[in-house]
Design a binder for these strands. Structure first.
Length: 814
RNA sequence: GCCGAAGUGGCGGAACGGCAGACGCGCCGCACUCAAAAUGCGGUGGGCAUUGCCCGUGUGGGUUCGAAUCCCACCUUCGGCACCA
């Protein structure tokens, strides 16, 4: 079946790339026998949102790096599953659809086709028979099923709460989708609205999500981001009795119970339920005005730090240890949504409390000092955690750590408080008041309340409508489709109404990789357990860091929850995650609004996919990314031309590599292997360039072994050209199914060594000696060198430092 | 403010504590050409210079025979979080 492929004189990617792509497709190169694989290796990359603009260089960069990894593992003998799909639900698709006046369904179909065409041109080793589209009812049926499972387990719940509302997208957003008070999608300032919404109880998993991190083989940058986002802080919950005029209690959270003696006031968030209730008649109007004003201005969270404002309530709380009356104030620097929405004001040892105390004329007291002797007045808050307690009654003299423990113990004994842990992480807001998403599978019945749709009735199909523009009323477009809304209760069969919100797009992407192996053959379950056992958790996941606290955290949560429900045999879905870098353009973000999105078709047309792949990988370290500029592409183009020419002109050499060249050959195998395995694609390419330069400048004939090895090393990076060269070298189809070259460390040993000779640490001369020459011998030769004698002058030799086969440093006496 | 990453030629970037600047771009020179492009060959951190020498990895200290690399302090840039008690 082998066709004869006489190699062209010149490298013409435009003709060889489509030819090999067709051949690979016909041979099913990317497909793997999922059931029968002996060494399964799941090579995952983040499935893209198929935008109207098509694949951009950032996608190409990401996928190329992951594809190289998959190809390497394949050649190393693994059965690599490398699926690709489309994350096509969500606001992004919908906004484009609204803008262009094309129904999202049509738009997505066209965009997906275009993406697939581009991905095929790129030459990825994708298992297309398992591709999926999150907007396909056969997929989102199971997205809804996951919602139901969480609902049944009490992990999905509905509550009225202040939520982030994006006025431009006309929907609520999860905390993770709000970046410094702005919508991550459209950058609009986010407002607070009080709405009844669906949440996932991710906070119940906060400790587990956090505690697994240290042992996970993930890029540190992601682990740090998740650690910070979960934001666990330990301290105490303390209760203060409100004395007058009302009677009640205020619970505060503090990480510094040791500073309790320094509390001189209490502060409530404007949204605190007691804020108005405790105010005395005199202060009530001012408190009310402050609360109303705070409700209108963007929340403190949206605004960042600003001048402290607040009002007194006229009410006082009793200090649990000193009995002192502490004024209670309301101020917007205290966040309603964190801790208990109330803090004890310790101005001496908290910057914010200090600023607030100054603004409001409240007393500032030192209760922690660097040492027991030091007791100067405070010009600023002393926030160090090292020091001793002072002016703290019986606790004076204790260290901060001792003080914390002692005061918590006292609080527990006297029943005014207890040790407590709080988190920055909040529950995941799932509802979206939009059209283009999977409908939340819940029905509201007057008798039975919120009832899950029967599993047998899934999917709840997204109704066809041309009226999909969000209203901004807080209701989804689905609410105005009576045929969708009106239904019967799954439990009592009485009249009922459907939930009209759809779920967050991040739910779609939280489980897609569980589905890939089963899709599309398994239709009666979300995934087949045998395939899950065989293929998951994912061996390698490569993706962008922008999803550190979105997709990557949500996904871990969903898998943990499914694991607890006995639906998955593991808690952590990704054994290894590597964050690739970001491709910028002229130093800035590449975005449609800046009009600087570069699409790959142009590069494919001019240079071909292989040059594009290598060029992007050569831009800089893969995990750091780089700035896109076409300056360097000519260098890659020339390199591939030279490689092509070298092989085309050297097919008649000897079979085996001559002995003197073996060390070079083994060295390049070692370098490329190590660099590819650690995703250092830029230096792997440099090593191949060096070797290519070495071969083409060599006087004696180049062997088949050298060319074949080089071609195999090149294969993961430039799959089309490698296939072409492999063919020209008489190799059997396909180069991508050959074993990756291995090296023999014994062959790396050089016969001679170049020793750097230094005098006082400065290089003065070089010596070539047989490898393994002794220090005494190297020293003897070195001392005879003219340059050494000149620099040594008449000085005595104080000592000699010798690194075998590398360096000799002669140190002079002072 | 906090967390993270990083500062190296004209540019992108290489360098287990041991020859700084691999590899590539750009530039200069040469060859080929009527000419250009393409291609090939050579050169290319700065300074002084006759062999040679000095200075150089953001800044200032330190450790070391020896530091781009390790330690301390600082500056700058990028990314993330940001009144989280």
């Amino acid at each position: 079946m082998e066709e004869d492929f006489p190699i062209d004189d010149t490298y013409r990617p435009q003709s060889i790339e489509p030819r090999w792509q067709a051949r690979w497709q016909a041979a099913g190169i990317g497909e793997v026998d999922l059931g029968g694989a002996r060494r399964p290796y799941y090579n995952l990359m983040m499935f893209p949102y198929p935008s109207a603009e098509g694949l951009h260089v950032g996608n190409v960069f990401a996928f190329t790096g992951a594809d190289i990894h998959g190809r390497l593992r394949t050649m190393q003998g693994y059965d690599v599953f490398e699926p690709m799909g489309f994350d096509a639900f969500g606001i992004h698709s919908e906004n484009t659809a609204i803008k262009q006046g094309i129904h999202p369904k049509k738009l997505v179909a066209a965009n997906t086709r275009n993406f697939r065409r581009q991905l095929e041109r790129l030459g990825g080793r994708f298992a297309w028979s398992h591709t999926l589209d999150s907007t396909d009812p056969a997929y989102y049926r199971w997205t809804q099923w996951i919602f139901l499972k969480l609902f049944q387990a009490g992990l999905a719940y509905r509550k009225q709460a202040p939520v982030n509302w994006c006025p431009s997208c006309r929907t609520v957003l999860a905390d993770e989708q709000v970046i410094s008070g702005h919508c991550e999608r459209c950058d609009s300032m986010v407002e607070q609205r009080s709405l009844e919404q669906w949440f996932f109880r991710i906070t119940a998993y906060a400790d587990r999500l956090l505690d697994h991190l240290p042992d996970m083989d993930w890029s540190e940058v992601i682990k740090t981001a998740q650690t910070n986002w979960i934001g666990r802080s330990t301290g105490a919950s303390l209760t203060f009795a409100v004395e007058a005029p009302a009677v009640g209690q205020i619970e505060v959270f503090t990480t510094r119970p040791d500073t309790l003696y320094g509390a001189t006031f209490l502060t409530l968030a404007p949204s605190h339920p007691l804020a108005l209730a405790i105010a005395t008649a005199d202060y009530r109007p001012a408190v009310l005005a402050y609360i109303e004003q705070a409700a209108q201005t963007p929340s403190a969270e949206a605004d960042g730090e600003r001048a402290k404002t607040g009002v007194r309530t006229g009410a006082f709380a009793r200090h649990p240890l000193t009995g002192e009356a502490l004024p209670i104030l309301v101020a917007d620097y205290v966040l309603g949504g964190y801790g208990t929405g109330a803090v004890m004001g310790v101005p001496g040892h908290d910057q914010r409390d200090f600023a607030f105390a100054q603004a409001m004329g409240l007393p500032i007291r030192r209760v922690i000092s660097p040492s027991a002797e030091e007791d100067s007045p405070l010009a600023e808050a002393f926030t160090a955690e090292s020091g001793v307690l002072v002016h703290s009654g019986p606790y004076s003299g204790l260290s901060v750590a001792e003080g914390k423990a002692a005061i918590i113990a006292r609080a527990e004994q006297d029943a005014f408080g207890t040790a407590k842990t709080t988190y920055h992480l909040r529950d995941w807001l799932i509802s979206r008041q939009r059209y283009w998403g999977p409908p939340i599978p819940i029905v509201y019945c007057d008798h039975c309340g919120a009832v899950g749709v029967a599993e047998s009735d899934l999917p709840v199909l997204l109704p066809e409508t041309d009226d999909y523009v969000p209203q901004g009323t807080g209701a989804s477009p689905l609410a105005s489709i009576p045929a969708f809304v009106n239904t019967s209760c799954p439990r009592c069969q009485g009249p009922a109404r459907r939930e009209t919100d759809v779920s967050d797009n991040f739910l779609c992407s939280s489980w897609y990789f569980l589905r890939y192996p089963s899709h599309p053959d398994v239709t009666d379950r979300p995934y087949d357990q045998t395939l899950i056992d065989k293929w998951l958790p994912v061996d390698s996941y490569i993706g962008g860091k922008e999803h550190a606290v979105l997709h990557l955290l949500y996904t871990r949560f969903i898998c943990m929850a499914l694991s607890d429900l006995g639906l998955l045999p593991f808690e952590e879905p990704f054994l290894r995650f590597r964050a690739h870098g970001t491709i910028t353009f002229q130093g800035g973000k590449m975005s449609k609004s800046r009009g600087n999105v570069v699409t790959p078709d142009d590069l494919f047309d001019r240079y071909g996919a292989d040059t594009t792949r290598l060029y992007l990988m050569f831009l800089g370290p893969y995990q750091e990314g780089g700035d896109y500029s076409e300056r360097n592409i000519e260098g890659i183009w020339r390199f591939l031309q030279r490689v092509h020419r070298l092989v085309a002109q050297s097919t008649n050499g000897p079979r085996a590599c001559a002995a003197p060249h073996l060390a070079d050959l083994h060295r390049v195998v070692k370098r490329v292997t190590e660099d590819l395995e650690t995703l250092k694609y830029n230096t792997a390419i440099a090593a191949l360039m060096e070797y290519n330069n070495l071969l083409r400048q060599r006087e004696d004939a180049i062997s088949h072994q050298e060319l074949a090895t080089f071609t195999l090393l090149l294969a993961p990076l430039a799959p089309h050209l490698a296939e072409e060269l492999w063919q020209a070298l008489g190799g059997a189809f396909s180069v991508h199914e050959q074993p990756f070259p291995t090296y023999d460390p014994a062959q790396l040993v050089e016969a001679t060594a170049t020793i750097v000779v230094q005098v006082d640490g400065r290089v003065r001369e070089r010596l070539t000696v047989p490898a393994g020459t002794s220090q005494a011998e190297v020293r003897r030769q070195a001392l005879e060198l003219e340059a050494v004698q000149r620099h040594l002058a008449d000085a005595e030799v104080a000592r000699v430092v010798f690194v075998p086969d590398r360096l000799l440093n002669i140190v002079r006496e002072d």
